Amino acid sequence: MSEGGKLPIALFNGTVATSNGTYHVEDITVEEAKQLIEKYGFLSAIGHEAVAEVMSYLFGVEIEMNRIQFQHQVGQKAIALKLTERPPEGSVLCREEMDKIGYSLKIMTRID
């Protein structure tokens, strides 16, 4: 938990529903994401090293790969990196390949 009892921002390597519920998903800028992380802290649920590297670079903080079973809580926000195109099946991309493909950031909030 971060200050004030607020849940930390979860970090994902894709937009995925980790718990049953209703989610709101929209674009978020790097600056907006950085502000949320600074305010609430974060919990990495990133399962791919290259995504952890990209997010570390974007947010200016060390973010580790952390393959955990994460359960999104009601009201909790998550920031996900979404590739602009789907890579071939079985691909494991490096950071340079991800930069070449392109990506955006999404904020996912579990509503109920």
Score class of each variant (00 low, 15 high):
Gln69Val: 14
Asp99Pro: 00
Ile9Asp: 03
Ala33Gly: 14
Ser56Asp: 11
Arg110Thr: 07
Asp99Val: 13
Pro88Thr: 02
Arg95Leu: 14
Gly47Ala: 12
Pro87Asn: 08
Val16Asn: 08
Ala17Ser: 15
Gly60Val: 08
Glu49Gln: 14
Val51Glu: 01
Ile9Gly: 06
Tyr103Ile: 04
Met98Arg: 03
Thr109Val: 14
Ile46Asn: 06
Met65Gln: 10
Glu49Leu: 11
Phe12Leu: 12
Thr15Tyr: 05
Lys100Leu: 14
Pro88Val: 02
Gly102Cys: 06
Ser56Tyr: 08
Glu53Ala: 13
Val74Asn: 10
Leu81Ala: 10
Val25Gln: 08
Phe12Met: 04
Val54Trp: 07
Met108Ala: 11
Glu64Ser: 15
Gln69Cys: 09
Ile9His: 04
Ser44Tyr: 10
Val16Gln: 04
Lys106Met: 10
Ile63Asp: 03
Phe70Arg: 00
Glu49Tyr: 06
Tyr23Phe: 15
Glu32Met: 05
Ser91Glu: 11
Gln69Pro: 08
Leu83Lys: 03
Ile46Trp: 06
Ile37Asn: 01
Gly21Leu: 02
Thr18Leu: 15
Lys100Ala: 14
Ile68Leu: 04
Glu38Trp: 04
Val92Gln: 01
Gly21Phe: 01
Asp112Asn: 13
Gln35His: 05
Lys34Ser: 07
Gly90Val: 01
Leu83Cys: 08
Arg95Ser: 10
Gly5Ala: 09
Gly41Glu: 13
Asn66Ile: 05
Phe59Asn: 11
Asp27His: 04
Gly47Phe: 11
His48Thr: 07
Asp99Lys: 08
Glu85Lys: 09
Tyr40Lys: 09
Tyr103Leu: 05
Gly47Gln: 05
Lys34Met: 05
Lys39Gln: 15
Phe12Glu: 02
Tyr57Asp: 13
Glu62Thr: 08
Thr109Tyr: 07
Gly90Lys: 02
Tyr40Ile: 01
Gly47Asp: 09
Ala52Tyr: 03
Met1Asn: 09
Arg67Asp: 14
Met98His: 04
Ala45Ile: 04
Tyr23Ala: 11
Arg86His: 09
Met55Thr: 06
Ala33Cys: 10
Glu49Gly: 00
Gln69Asn: 14
Ile107Ala: 01
Ala33Tyr: 03
Ala80Asp: 07
Ile46Ala: 09
Pro87Asp: 01
Val54Ala: 12
Val51Pro: 00
Asp112Gly: 11
Val51Ala: 12
Ala50Ile: 03
Ala78Gly: 13
Ser2His: 03
Leu11Asn: 08
Val61Asn: 00
Ala80Gly: 10
Val74Lys: 13
Thr29Ile: 09
Ala45Asp: 09
Cys94Met: 14
Gly14Thr: 04
Ile107Lys: 04
Ser19Gly: 00
Gly60His: 04
Ser104Asn: 08
Phe12Cys: 03
Tyr103Gln: 04
Tyr23Ile: 12
Phe70Ser: 00
Gly14Lys: 05
Gly47Cys: 07
Ile37Met: 01
Asn66Lys: 06
Ala17Tyr: 06
Glu31Asp: 10
Leu93Gly: 07
Ser104Leu: 13
Glu3Asn: 06
Gly75Met: 07
Leu43Tyr: 13
Ile111Val: 15
Ala33Pro: 11
Gly75Phe: 09
Ile37Ala: 02
Leu36Met: 15
Ile9Trp: 02
Gly21Ala: 02
Met98Pro: 09
Ile111Phe: 10
Glu89Ser: 11
Lys34Glu: 03
Gly102His: 09
Asp99His: 11
Lys34Asn: 00
Val16Ser: 05
Thr15Leu: 05
Leu105Asn: 02
Arg110Ser: 09
Gln76Met: 12
Ile68Pro: 00
Asn13Phe: 00
Gly102Asp: 07
Glu3His: 03
